[in-house]
């Protein structure tokens, strides 16, 4: 019998859905094994179609995107109930992703920024989105916009994680193959990625060099063979899980950390503090500070993809 599958996007960009399509002709193999009963970005389905299903009827649901509003949470819970195996697909569902950078702000400050402050906003009446409003006698409702962006596993039980922003298509194929063959590791595992650090799969040469100046890609042309971190660029390779094939590194850009932390590491960004402290040269406070001054916005640079899953989860209010 054919398996039943679903794919959903919460607070994401759709890049994970595109990554699924990017498995190209292998999608045919997938379609041979599994029928998609729900995939809003690709086909027309209604949430009520899912509500009408039996509990546990989906064999597999891939949920991409973070949980940013009440609709994301509602559908996550609905899909959880309707599925046997639920997978967090991509960085946002896994560890919050870029949307969770919003956790350094509040709902209020974001709404003010977007609806009144930005340079391109024209809103003389100060109109703000409301959860409920009446238009021509009809009551309209929007999902509740949350104050704190959450990872998928902060609202439902998650069986597996496929990291990446977006996941490498081949890794999606590997993960799906594991599902089809029933070769899944213990629940809660990361699938479709390695277990070592990105530095382990990085082709660049390391010389155990210490750094005495932090640089930014816009101010330099890095040596194509040598480790970017040792050239003074902030590269999250030492604290990031391997699995992407070092795609940014191979294009000359340092790793931003989208494959998330290693097994057993709770907070990737905080871990980066240790990694960086080990390679900075100076020993005197003043000189150390002078090097650190070169890191623009360390908190968000280190937690670019993982704020929702970090220890503190958000800026203190």
């Amino acid at each position: 019998m054919k398996l039943k599958g679903g794919i959903y996007w919460g607070a994401g960009c759709g890049g994970c859905d595109v990554a699924v399509l990017d498995i190209h002709e292998k999608i045919l193999d997938v379609a041979e094994k599994m029928d998609f009963l729900f995939w809003p970005i690709a086909m027309d389905f209604k949430n009520d179609d899912v509500r009408a299903m039996e509990d546990g009827e989906f064999d597999l649901v891939l949920y991409s995107g973070a949980v940013r509003n009440s609709e994301n949470e509602e559908i996550a819970k609905l899909l959880r109930r309707k599925s046997k195996t639920m997978v967090a697909l991509g960085t946002c569902a896994h560890i919050g992703g870029l949307p969770s950078l919003a956790n350094y702000h509040t709902k209020q400050s974001i709404l003010e920024r977007v609806y009144s402050e930005t340079e391109s906003t024209v809103n003389p009446e100060g109109t703000m989105p409301l959860e409920r409003s009446t238009v021509d006698g009809n009551e309209l409702e929007l999902p509740r916009f949350y104050n704190t962006v959450k990872t998928l596993d902060q609202v439902v039980d998650v069986d597996y994680y496929i990291p990446g922003c977006p996941p490498v298509p081949q890794q999606i194929v590997n993960a799906l193959t594991a599902v089809f063959n029933g070769e899944l590791p213990p629940k809660g595992s990361v699938i479709g990625a390695g277990t070592k650090t990105l530095c382990d799969e990085c082709p660049r040469e390391r010389e155990e060099k210490e750094i005495s100046e932090i640089k930014r890609p816009l101010n330099m042309i890095p040596d194509p063979e040598k480790c970017l971190l040792e050239q003074g660029l902030i590269c999250l390779g030492p604290v990031t899980r391997e699995g992407c094939g070092a795609r940014c590194i191979n294009s000359g850009a340092p790793c931003r950390g989208c494959y998330g932390p290693l097994e057993g590491v709770h907070d990737q960004g905080i871990r980066m503090i240790s990694a960086l402290a080990s390679v900075i040269e100076p020993k005197e406070e003043k000189e150390i500070d002078a090097v650190l001054d070169g890191i623009v916005d360390p908190l968000r640079t280190f937690h670019r993809f993982s704020t929702a899953a970090s220890i503190l989860r958000r800026k203190k209010i």
Binding site: D55, E74, A76, K77, L78, R80, R81, D153, Q154, V155, V156, D157, R313
Partner: peptide, 8 residues
């Protein structure tokens, strides 16, 4: 709705 919340 079901689903196990895994809050802090």
């Amino acid at each position: 709705e079901s689903g196990v919340a895994n809050e802090a």
